[in-house]
């Protein structure tokens, strides 16, 4: 069995905007795992996603948790819903003005690099 986390990191690093999905019930799942939390099948894969999501919540960090991020503070972290039950946690691009943010607004996702790692980030508002 492949490590589902490694598979997703690698796909992102390869430039593929995708998320884990269950080939049995169709549910998306994040963070990825070996078992589908909706139907408990183990038939999990990666599926491409639309480059949009809904902004659920955000928080601005003023002191980095580790040296990896020390040069980046302050930065804003968000929870973004891909569908009503699938959430990712990522950065909001510094180009986005915080006062423009609204809960439930649509945002544009694209692969970016945070702390040296490729991952989907909020690149702008829709």
């Amino acid at each position: 069995m492949n490590d589902p986390a490694e598979d997703l990191w690698k796909a992102w690093a390869d430039g593929r905007l995708c998320i884990q999905n269950c080939t049995n019930c169709g549910a998306l799942q994040h963070p990825p795992g070996p078992v589908c939390a909706s139907c408990h099948a183990t038939t999990l894969d990666l599926t491409d996603i639309a480059p949009t999501g809904k902004l659920v919540a955000w928080s601005t960090v003023h002191r980095a948790p580790s040296p990896t991020f020390a040069d980046e503070v302050p930065y804003t972290i968000a929870v973004i819903a891909l569908d009503p039950t699938t959430f990712i946690e990522s950065r909001i691009s510094p180009a986005v003005v915080e006062s423009d943010l609204r809960v439930d607004m649509s945002v544009r996702l694209e692969l970016g690099e945070i702390g040296g790692r490729a991952m989907p980030v909020v690149a702008g508002l829709v």
Binding site: T68, I77, R117
Partner: peptide, 24 residues
């Protein structure tokens, strides 16, 4: 660092995780 790797990746504090829930 004890958070899920897909949370840690964007640089949250433990406080940030509670802050996101507080904001919501």
């Amino acid at each position: 660092a004890s958070l899920n790797a897909f949370e840690v990746a964007s640089g949250p504090l433990i406080t940030t995780q509670y802050a996101l829930i507080a904001h919501s």
